[in-house]
Write a protein that binds this DNA or RNA. Structure first.
Lengths: 191, 191
DNA sequence: TTTGTTACATAACAACTGTTATAAGGCAAG
DNA sequence: CTTGCCTTATAACAGTTGTTATGTAACAAA
């Protein structure tokens, strides 16, 4: 087991504590306890707590990007775009946890410009992917030529972000099927 | 100056600290310092810190509801619905701060079911308002009769929530005019 | 004036925080 | 074996946290 893997283990332990107890209760000692070891391990693989936080936040971005890239295996088409967008909805426990950690970090970034900048970069990468998808669909005549890919990419991401958030809050919201329909219909209107 | 007002002053001081420094750095002492007094004031008007947090969170909900109810003065129509939805977008500094505090609290509520339930109640009230508006518009033949008000209310709120969030992250996102257009177009499709 | 309530200040408490230094064991290379 | 590195444990540090108790003015009611 390399040191790389150990870093991931610490980060994943941090995730579990964040999801279960909240980010502010995720102390070095709590992470170590989750990993069933002492704080010596945590401090050995991460300089600072901020170092750990940034690593864990980066993991969130990677998880989201990985989910989106996975559906790029499918053949080009509007269904692929929809599938890509549905990646953001918390359909299983894992994606639900990803969203929870993401929200926790976003709230934590309020009043912290350097962390908010990290979110900005992350959102930029995701938007670029969706925008490229839209342009590809436009080029293949799947979508109308008069719409602005940048605007639509933002709108679509905002929509799925909002839907995912509502799911997290569990505001007696739409079930997953209904959420998928909402996204589906929005995409259909772009055709 | 009654005791009610003093409670609001403390809560507003807490808001300012949250926006400027982040929720986790918003300690009793920081709030007192922001109010230019000692912690005795804070502890005198709030039993717990949780008591203070819940009050401040409730203030966020009230601020959002107040903004939505204000536009209900306008004559019924699709423009009123759009105006109601635009309430959630951070067009000025105050609404931007409201959104920041809201996001901070939402992230803080991860791993805290009782706080998440408060968000749930808040979201429920907002959704009820939008849903009532949709039903009124349907009754007046402004909107198509075949669409489900509950689904559309959720979708619309998700859209504006997502747009507002993107604005907060400042992800080189759409400017306010473009965001308004996105909402406007979505509503037009419901007609 | 006396009394009692409200409003605020001060100080101390134990618990917890991130950080750091030091030490001990595991294990491969020489 | 010895040497040195990697990993982990332990302990202590100074600072911050929420909470609580106590003290002290201000001020209205009696």
């Amino acid at each position: 087991m390399g040191q790389r893997d150990r870093r991931y283990e610490v980060s994943e332990a941090a995730w579990r504590v964040i999801v279960r107890e909240g980010l502010d209760r995720t102390s070095m000692r709590a992470i170590a306890h989750e990993l069933a070891c002492t704080t010596g391990v945590v401090t050995h693989y991460f300089r600072d707590k901020q170092d750990l936080i940034l690593f864990a936040l980066h993991q969130v971005t990677q998880a989201l990007l990985q989910g989106m890239r996975a559906v790029q295996q499918q053949p080009l088409g509007c269904d692929r775009l929809v599938a890509m967008l549905l990646t953001f909805l918390p359909l299983d426990t894992k994606q639900r946890d990803i969203l929870k950690v993401w929200v926790a970090f976003l709230g934590y970034a309020v009043g912290r410009p350097e962390l908010m900048a990290e979110h900005q970069r992350s959102a930029g990468e995701l938007r670029a992917l969706v925008m490229a998808e839209l342009q590809a669909l436009q080029g293949a005549q799947y979508l109308r030529a008069d719409l602005d890919p940048a605007v639509e990419a933002n709108a679509l991401l905002a929509l799925v972000n909002g839907l995912g958030l509502d799911s997290l809050i569990q505001a007696q919201c739409l079930n997953l099927e209904q959420q998928q329909q909402v996204v589906q219909r929005y995409v259909e209107r772009l055709q």
